[in-house]
Design a binder for these strands. Sequence first.
DNA 1: ACTCATCACTCGTCAGTACGAGTGACGTCA
DNA 2: TGACGTCACTCGTACTGACGAGTGATGAGT
Lengths: 277, 277
Amino acid sequence: MLTSDVSETTGHRASEGNGMSQIQRPGALYRQVAAAIRDAIATGEYPPGTLLPSETQLIERYGVSRPTVRNAVAALRTEGLIDVVHGKGSYVRGAPTPALTIERTVSHDNGGTFTLDGGAGWQQPEKPHAYRTTTTMATGPLLGLEEGEALFGVDRLLIDPTTGTRALHQTLIPFATAEGTELADHPDTEPAAIYALFTEAGHTLHWTETVRARMPLPDERTTLHLHDATPLLETTRVTHGSGDQPLILETLRTSADRTQLTYRIAPEQPRNLSAIR
Amino acid sequence: MLTSDVSETTGHRASEGNGMSQIQRPGALYRQVAAAIRDAIATGEYPPGTLLPSETQLIERYGVSRPTVRNAVAALRTEGLIDVVHGKGSYVRGAPTPALTIERTVSHDNGGTFTLDGGAGWQQPEKPHAYRTTTTMATGPLLGLEEGEALFGVDRLLIDPTTGTRALHQTLIPFATAEGTELADHPDTEPAAIYALFTEAGHTLHWTETVRARMPLPDERTTLHLHDATPLLETTRVTHGSGDQPLILETLRTSADRTQLTYRIAPEQPRNLSAIR
DNA sequence: ACTCATCACTCGTCAGTACGAGTGACGTCA
DNA sequence: TGACGTCACTCGTACTGACGAGTGATGAGT
């Protein structure tokens, strides 16, 4: 039995011509079913890990057809509320507690070394894949190059052994920065070693990281073992040398429901400061 | 006509008992249709902004039924590749170019002030909503409190006037930090002013930001005007005072396809450093 | 010239039916 | 006791048919 009294939200504020729309019309039957299940989950009637009623049971319970039930379940699935497993049923997904925290605190230890990618002791189950590419519309500007410049590329699959979290790491090295270094012959050098290389060459490095999120492509879904309705956290790190010129570009892609990034922000000289926004 | 030769991937590597699964079986008809359209988009046959063939046309072209076509389209939709508009058709979505870059560079200007939330001149179209809550399982540890401690809460809807990007901002202030300050009477003070308040009280502030991404809840979808298959970027910022004790907790939720966060990382004293990972 | 009803097109929703495919338990058989 | 086939349950896929609802152009009417 559904909520027979569906309050028709007629007077929705006029859309400001965004061209995107997709308003929530609760009138649809499957939306009512979805809302009912969603509420039941939120209420605690179905705690995380619980098996939801089967499709046939939902059909009987709400008196609707199977397409309607499946539509409702599909909605909850794209919201990331449930995990549907073929021969078994629909499991309520727990709160997406990130198992892996990637800390980006710049901290010194006794030897003068410091760490990025804090904590996570990545392992590489496969050999890194080295190749050659050119800058694209997206990567060019970040490296301060035109579109179509030659690059070394290295792809790695990283796995955090304690949590099993997977990550995709890409390193892009312009020919200009590899020139004259051992990178020209060994572009698949570990990022840590690359940094050391440049600091020993007299560079003072700093980094610019931009964090974005998006839905994964099908192949990213499979290689990263992503659940349904799980976004991708994409971190792009540009390493700058002395004089601010970009040296290399790294991209780290991880599962958003297993990973979070932490940054520690502090003013360099804590002197008189007044307004922040 | 579809690719009649479907290579059956029978011997898939045994799942490592993750309990999640969902393997890509290309055998399904609608997957083949989806793949065909996806390739056509990738090839450039349907550039961004283009209208895809209508359902009826796709039915004829691939010789399948309408549910199959709709299933294929739904797949592309959850991948974020297309935007489907009711009476019009399916538009190819362009590359998700973030219009808004929130910079988290800690930079000083002449007056000794510095900015977080760089650039974005947020506006508040509505009055902030102040209320009272208690710490939850998620918020408690961040503030160094037990679960169930009393909090002031303030919710704001922010809009970036130049791009129209929306954001949801939440401020949580423990009673302990509000005590003795004007925050007890005016918890809806602007974060900037709150920071100033504590610095003038002699605190040296620093911040810890953690970035996560997840799919939006239905109400977040509507209030943030989110497209289909668009994740939410959730930034949680804890303000620490002198002595590292957490003072307030802020959460900023924005559309992931219109927003990116940029952090600038530099070692404090650029002396001898060797290894990074 | 302007207004507005109509129509053809689009996607959205819902029903019913059928069969394939994965999972796990149960029971038979060696 | 152990191996294995069967069966009942789950969701996945695909088809048919029908109607509702949003959009835009066309054309009749004023």
